[in-house]
């Protein structure tokens, strides 16, 4: 079974559509959304509606910190641009869309899989998995799952741990199927679909083929010019538009 994993869509409809189309062409049979569907981008409503359709057809989804902030009006821990975007987002979501976000779980555990937005350690603390020590703690908290997937950090990284306690970080190459056998444990930060920050403007997602098993990270070029124009037209902070144009 091929499972497409998308994180940090951040209300970027162009990027979301490009990833979904690409995943479909690659034979995706199921989808998982790893949180932060909204915030930053100009299409929160359309993105939530599109994802809700997938969830109704069996896709998995978890809640992210931006999703929660957009519901609760709590964004004091965020930087200024993010806070402004959250206020704007809140005003652009319908009751139904808010209800969908509110009902999302923090984690999903299923058949060797563990899905979460930030670190599995304390899902609601929204910790960033940015180094092998954090990855080790996250793997420990999510045991015994073989494949742990998260977002929150907007750069794709794969951690693996075997008999030793210290995981290794690996920056994946787009399009290469990496064998991820179940006798090891794996934690993948799948990268951001809607707001990549590693200097590459292309949207990012990952595909797990559970039959092999193998994991492939993909980079998908999308119309970021259109997405950035919408951010500007909506009156959202200029820095959020520039981020899409530069991918950092």
């Amino acid at each position: 079974m091929k499972l497409a994993l998308l994180a940090d869509v951040h209300a970027n409809l162009e990027a979301l559509r490009a990833c979904l189309e690409h995943a479909e062409s690659q034979g995706a049979e199921r989808y998982a959304f790893l949180g932060d569907l909204v915030g930053y981008g100009a299409d929160p409503g359309a993105v939530v509606d599109l994802v809700r359709g997938y969830v109704e057809r069996g896709a998995l989804a978890v809640k992210g910190n931006h999703d929660e902030a957009a519901l609760a009006g709590q964004s004091e821990s965020m930087h200024q641009a993010a806070e402004r975007a959250i206020a704007w987002t809140r005003a652009h979501l319908s009751d139904g869309q808010r209800a969908f976000l509110a009902a999302l779980p923090l984690t999903v555990r299923e058949d060797g899989l563990f899905l979460v937005h930030a670190s599995p350690e304390q899902p609601h603390e929204w910790l960033y998995v940015t180094d092998p020590a954090r990855a080790a703690a996250g793997l420990e908290a999510s045991a015994p799952a073989s494949w742990v997937f998260c977002g929150h950090v907007h750069e794709p990284v794969l951690y693996t741990v075997g008999s030793a306690a210290r995981p290794v970080a690996f920056r994946p190459v787009s399009g290469v199927a990496i064998p991820v056998p179940a006798h090891r444990r794996w934690l993948a930060v799948v990268g951001s679909a809607g707001q990549p920050r590693d200097g590459n403007t292309a949207a990012c997602y990952a595909m797990l083929d559970t039959d092999r098993p193998a994991l492939t990270f993909h980079r998908v070029p999308y119309d970021w010019r259109a997405a950035a124009s919408k951010v500007r037209a909506a009156g959202l902070p200029e820095s959020l538009a520039r981020r899409l144009e530069r991918g950092e």
């Binding site: 290794v168 290469v176 990496i178």
Partner: peptide, 11 residues
Amino acid sequence: HAHYPDLLAEE
């Protein structure tokens, strides 16, 4: 191999 994680690095 540059396309795969270095499994030996952890050990």
